[in-house]
Write a protein that binds this DNA or RNA. Sequence first.
DNA 1: TCTGAAAGTTTTCATCC
DNA 2: GGATGAAAACTTTCAGA
Lengths: 152, 152
Amino acid sequence: MPKTLDDIDHRLLALLQQDSGRTLAALGDLVGLSPSAVQRRIDRYRETGLLRREIAVVDPSSALLAVCLVTLDRESPESHRSFREWVQAAPEVQQFYNVSGDHDYVVILATSGMAHHRETAERVIKNAPNLRRYSTMFVLDPIRTTLTVPTR
Amino acid sequence: MPKTLDDIDHRLLALLQQDSGRTLAALGDLVGLSPSAVQRRIDRYRETGLLRREIAVVDPSSALLAVCLVTLDRESPESHRSFREWVQAAPEVQQFYNVSGDHDYVVILATSGMAHHRETAERVIKNAPNLRRYSTMFVLDPIRTTLTVPTR
DNA sequence: TCTGAAAGTTTTCATCC
DNA sequence: GGATGAAAACTTTCAGA
C-alpha cells in the first residue's frame, strides 16, 4: 500500500523516471534531502511495488517500430487467451495493450528491419485464430519514447 | 560507429534492457566474461550512443493510458511543426510517433485518471490547428510495457 | 516515525599485464 | 580479455529531533 506520497516523493519519482543513473547524493541535492533519506524513500517505492525495476534504454532509431491494431472475431474468452499467450511469447513485442473501442489490442513491434518485421507479423499476429481485422502503422519517426507515468 | 557487435554484446544488451540493476559481476557470470570486460563493453555502448540512459520503471497500472490516433488537415509543414512542438511540451505524452498510413501521429497519453485525461487531450491535441481526425483507445490492460528493441 | 551522519561493505573505475 | 588497487557509491547502524 503506497502511503500518501508527498511533494518530494513526486519529484523524486519524476527524476528517477527520467534518469535513474544519478547517485543518491545528486538526487538528494535536487530534492533537498540527505542521501540516506533519498535511499529510504526509494526502498519504500520498491517495497510497495510502485517502482518495478531499472532498465537501460537503447536508441530506438536503430530499430523498425510498428504500431499494429488488432481485432479478434468474437468475444470468446479462449481466442483472447490464446492470442495473448501467442503475442506475449514473442520478444519482438515491445508493447501490448488491451484497449477499448473498435479494436481489441494495440501491439507495438520492434524489429531489426522490414524482413524481420514481416516474419514477426506473420508469426505473431496473422496466424492468430479468430483474427478479424489487422492494420499496421509503421513508425517513421519515434519522436518520444518513454515509459513515464504521472504519480499524482 | 557501432563496431560490429558479437554474440555476447547482443546478450548483454538484451539483459540490460530487461534489467540494468545487476552488478557487473552478475552480468559477467551470465555472459561468461569478467566484470572488467563487461564494463568495457558497456562503456563502448554508451560512447557510441547505442545506450542512451537508464530509467526507473513505475508500475503503469497506477495510471490511465490512452492511445490516440491523430490526422492533421494538410501536409503543410507549419501545422506539423506546431503540432509537434505542442505535443512535445506536454509531460503527459509518454510516447509520440510519426507514422505511415491513414493517420499522421500516434500519441500515448499517461494520466492520473479520466479528469486528467480529458484536460490533457483537450489542451494537447484537440486545440491543434488543422486537426482533421482524432480518435482515442483507452488502455484496459497494459499487458506489456517495455522499450526493448532488437540489437541484431 | 523520520531524518542525518558515520562506519563497514560492495561496486565501479583506471591502469597494467 | 583479465587482474589489481584506488575511488566512489551503496548499505547498515545508530543517535537525535
